[in-house]
Simulated scan of single mutants.
Amino acid sequence: MASDIMDYSINGLPLHILIVHAVVIVVPVAAIVVLLAAVWRRARRWFGLVTPILGVIAAVLVFVAKEAGEWLKDRLPDSPLIQEHTDLGDTLLPWTIALAVLSIVVHVWYRVVEKRAADDAPSPLVRRIVAIVLAVAAVVVVPAGIITTVIIGESGSRAVWEGSFSDTPLEE
């Protein structure tokens, strides 16, 4: 495993705690962009290459966060909250890979279809079927990816902060 041979820290801070901030922003943004691009022609034109770029960046960030998280887990005392977060963390990468693939397929399909001459383009039936399949895929992948990101983030926050602060201000 890569986490065994790499140092996932920056200036003494675990990379995981830094990169998860990018994950919780980029994954939902990429997901929303992919959904909009899958179902709305104007959004496809606005976003252009941003759609597949964000999808791929989301998957890469999640992969690095997962590897850095494994590295960090090996350096923390074992606890049920950390184990729960680790188990949940393993579920996000498949969703973001699906998001990356979908972002590329949506971009390439519509670029190819929109660039072809009318006599060389797929039939209206094929275009309609592909549009429906891409929209359904987006409607499944996007919410699942966002919800999974939120659940994992909440479990990580709980693992770090539960029992480590006071509900009331401390006396000075």
Rank of each mutant, 00 (worst) to 15 (best):
residue 141 V to Q: 01
residue 53 I to Q: 05
residue 141 V to W: 00
residue 35 L to E: 01
residue 55 G to Y: 00
residue 138 A to H: 03
residue 67 E to V: 11
residue 155 S to T: 09
residue 106 V to F: 01
residue 70 E to P: 06
residue 36 L to M: 11
residue 66 K to V: 06
residue 3 S to C: 11
residue 11 N to H: 13
residue 109 W to C: 04
residue 99 L to Y: 00
residue 149 T to V: 00
residue 46 W to L: 14
residue 157 S to F: 07
residue 79 S to L: 08
residue 165 F to A: 06
residue 161 W to C: 03
residue 144 A to L: 14
residue 9 S to K: 15
residue 130 V to I: 14
residue 14 P to G: 11
residue 48 G to I: 05
residue 150 V to W: 04
residue 11 N to C: 04
residue 95 W to G: 01
residue 153 G to V: 04
residue 51 T to Y: 02
residue 77 P to G: 12
residue 136 V to G: 09
residue 38 A to Q: 03
residue 168 T to D: 07
residue 140 V to Q: 08
residue 91 T to A: 10
residue 143 P to K: 13
residue 13 L to K: 12
residue 146 I to D: 00
residue 126 V to C: 11
residue 4 D to W: 04
residue 61 L to R: 03
residue 45 R to A: 13
residue 78 D to W: 13
residue 17 I to E: 10
residue 51 T to M: 05
residue 76 L to H: 09
residue 96 T to K: 10
residue 47 F to T: 01
residue 15 L to T: 04
residue 39 V to N: 10
residue 143 P to D: 10
residue 167 D to K: 13
residue 129 I to R: 15
residue 164 S to T: 12
residue 167 D to I: 07
residue 20 V to S: 00
residue 70 E to H: 12
residue 81 L to N: 14
residue 120 D to W: 05
residue 13 L to M: 14
residue 25 I to T: 02
residue 161 W to F: 08
residue 28 P to G: 05
residue 118 A to S: 15
residue 14 P to K: 12
residue 70 E to S: 08
residue 128 R to Q: 13
residue 127 R to D: 10
residue 170 L to H: 11
residue 155 S to W: 05
residue 56 V to T: 07
residue 83 Q to W: 04
residue 114 E to G: 07
residue 115 K to P: 00
residue 87 D to Y: 04
residue 144 A to N: 11
residue 34 V to T: 12
residue 141 V to Y: 00
residue 19 I to Y: 02
residue 69 G to T: 14
residue 21 H to N: 12
residue 36 L to W: 02
residue 104 I to F: 02
residue 21 H to E: 03
residue 95 W to E: 04
residue 112 V to S: 10
